[in-house]
Each structure stands twice: as structure tokens, then as C-alpha cells.
């Protein structure tokens, strides 16, 4: 494989700053660049890319910033994908890294379709051996596969929490690049934006998740989950049963048809551990479960199981953490 550069797509968060997933992908890109001895380049496309591009330059030596006014009031994925596709076809990097979240996947799909480049998906690890060598956790953590590209170019989508984001020793430079060529794909206008009350940071990125299941019993019961999560500085997650019952929004759902997460700690309260939930969280580093039922399936893949009533145990853990902090 020719020594093409390693590119990383810098996603914009809603406020125009750089999305966390991109700081991780950029850290990974830099490590690969060092291993491969090739250039590392960031690329940011947005109505005002300057803030995110500036942040990305803390991680990689060179960042291309493309101002694209259309993304201010249109669905971004298709537009960003077209701009990046044109650039990678011009400059021919070996690989484009992007996040494996909704934004990154939309961009990867468009870039792949327009360039014919292959996509290695949901990387939980990437090394370099004459090209990216990607490990993925498949079938909900049942197997770990190692794959590579068969051609000279490709895209890798990277899962959150795979590496710890770390800025480079010295900051890189941002180059403003003119967007070239017409955007030929239909642009979909955003006619309204609605902020949901009390939305937390994306749970995929949380280092600690405290999750509730059927055992939590109702929206009121989730207060116990929320308090423990707050004390641990973590996010609140849920099973499909809890979401279907309307106790907590779909955005917090973990599992087959919700989010796939890989936190340092997964604390499961009143969660049986059905396979559809397990596939979303079993690669967490540490799993602690509180359950009344000693035979709940979650005991088969947890590190620590407390047999007891979550409404007694969880507040007791919250209190113990508080008194520990108080010293």
C-alpha cells in the first residue's frame, strides 16, 4: 500500500465545537501516523468550522477547514460527505477515520458511495501494518474480529471510548480551504429545531453509566438511578423495557436497537441482562449489578453482583460515595 496520509474527520457538536468522538479519533489517527510514518490531516466542514478546526489542531499537525454555509440550515451529513469525498479523491489519503455515531456514519456512507472506498466499521482498536488493521467487537461482544482493507484506500468508523483523547505536544495549523465544485445531492432543509428538556451528554461517550431496567418500576424510580449517576459523574442509561414504558427517553436506551456503549463502569440497577440489552453493554470494562434475583442472567457477565433491593442498595451506595468524598 502506498504511504498515503491518514485523515480524520472532525465532527461539529451542536454548538460548533469539536465533538468528543473526534478528539478520540484524532488521537488514534496521530498514533497511526507515527506508526506508519505518514502525514496526519484533520478535515472539518461546517457553516463556521473555525472553532472545531482550532480544537482539532490541538490533536493533529494539519487541519483543513472548509466553510460550508449550507450546513447551517440543512441536514449536514450529505453535504459534509460530498465535500470530504471531493477532497479525498483529490489528495488520495490511505484512510479516513470518522466516528461510528450517527453523524460519522452518515458521512461514511456518502463518502463510500461517491468514492467506492470500502468501510471498516465500529473499530474498537486500530493498528497499522501496511494499512489499517481494525478490530471489531461483533455480535454484541461474542467475537472479536480483525479485518483490513483489500485496496489502497478506505474509511474506518471508530467507536467512542476506544482511546483516551490526548492533545499533541505542539499544536498544529489550520488551513482554510475553498469548497470546490457544486453540491449535486439534494439538500434537506431543517425547518425547526427542538431541544428536549434535560438532555444529557451522549451516553456513548460517558465513562460511567448507571442504568435502570424493569426493576426500577417507573419514572419516579429513576430518581434513584439519576442520583447515583450524578454522584459518580456519569450518565443515565436504560433498557428497552424502561424506555417502552415511557419512564425515560429513547436516547438513553442501551442495547440492540439503542446505543452500544463501552464505559469504564456500567452499574446496572434492576436489569435482568437479556441478550438484547447485553449486546449493548457487555464490553464495558467493569460491570456491577444490583438485582434481587440471584439467578438473573446479568450475574453471568458481571464482575460484581449485589443481591438486594435496588431501592435500598443504590441510595446506600450514593450515601457511601458522598461520605467518602466528605472524607
Amino acid at each position: 500500500m502506498p504511504a498515503g496520509a491518514i485523515w480524520v474527520h472532525g465532527e461539529l457538536a451542536g454548538d460548533g465545537s469539536l465533538a468528543n468522538i473526534s478528539t478520540e479519533a484524532a488521537t488514534l489517527a496521530r498514533a497511526l501516523g507515527d506508526a506508519a510514518g505518514v502525514d496526519v490531516v484533520g478535515v472539518v466542514v461546517g457553516a463556521d468550522p473555525s472553532a472545531a478546526a482550532g480544537e482539532l489542531a490541538r490533536y493533529v499537525p494539519r487541519v483543513l477547514a472548509i466553510a460550508e454555509p449550507a450546513t447551517a440550515d440543512h441536514a449536514a451529513g450529505t453535504i459534509v460527505g460530498q465535500r470530504i469525498a471531493a477532497l479525498v479523491e483529490r489528495d488520495g489519503p490511505a484512510v479516513l477515520l470518522t466516528g461510528a455515531g450517527p453523524e460519522g456514519r452518515d458521512v461514511a456512507g456518502v463518502v463510500s458511495a461517491l468514492t467506492g472506498w470500502g468501510v471498516l466499521v465500529n473499530a474498537v482498536g486500530v493498528t497499522w501494518d501496511d494499512g489499517p488493521v481494525v478490530t471489531m467487537s461483533v455480535f454484541g461482544g461474542k467475537l472479536t474480529t480483525t479485518s483490513r482493507l483489500t485496496g489502497d484506500h478506505g474509511i474506518v468508523t471508530v467507536r467512542p471510548n476506544v482511546v483516551t483523547a490526548e492533545p499533541a505536544g505542539s499544536p498544529g495549523r489550520v488551513e482554510d480551504v475553498e469548497a470546490a465544485g457544486a453540491l449535486t445531492l439534494p439538500q434537506v432543509p431543517i425547518v425547526d429545531r427542538v431541544e428536549a428538556a434535560g438532555v444529557a451528554a451522549p451516553i456513548e461517550e460517558a465513562r460511567v453509566i448507571v442504568a435502570g431496567g424493569r426493576g426500577v418500576g417507573g419514572s419516579d424510580g429513576f430518581k434513584v438511578v439519576e442520583e447515583l449517576a450524578a454522584e459518580l459523574g456519569g450518565a443515565v442509561g436504560a433498557t428497552r423495557a424502561a424506555v417502552d414504558s415511557g419512564w425515560i427517553p429513547y436516547a438513553q436506551q442501551i442495547g440492540q436497537t439503542g446505543k452500544i456503549v463501552k464505559p469504564a463502569l456500567y452499574l446496572a440497577l434492576g436489569i435482568s441482562g437479556a441478550i438484547q440489552h447485553k449486546v449493548g453493554m457487555q464490553t464495558a470494562e467493569t460491570i456491577v449489578a444490583v438485582n434481587r434475583d440471584p439467578d438473573a442472567p446479568i450475574a453471568d457477565f458481571a464482575d460484581l453482583v449485589v443481591i438486594g433491593d435496588l431501592f435500598e442498595v443504590a441510595p446506600a451506595i450514593t450515601a457511601a460515595l458522598r461520605s467518602r468524598k466528605a472524607g
Partner: peptide, 18 residues
């Protein structure tokens, strides 16, 4: 455009502390 080189089961967690 992609090829799987190998697949293996991740190491088991071992029995939990109860």
C-alpha cells in the same frame, strides 16, 4: 473491499464476586 483476517472469542470475565 474489506477482508476479515481472524476472529476469536474475547477472554471470559470469570465468575463475578457476589
Amino acid at each position: 473491499t474489506t477482508a476479515v483476517l481472524s476472529a476469536e472469542a474475547p477472554p471470559p470475565r470469570g465468575a463475578p464476586r457476589v
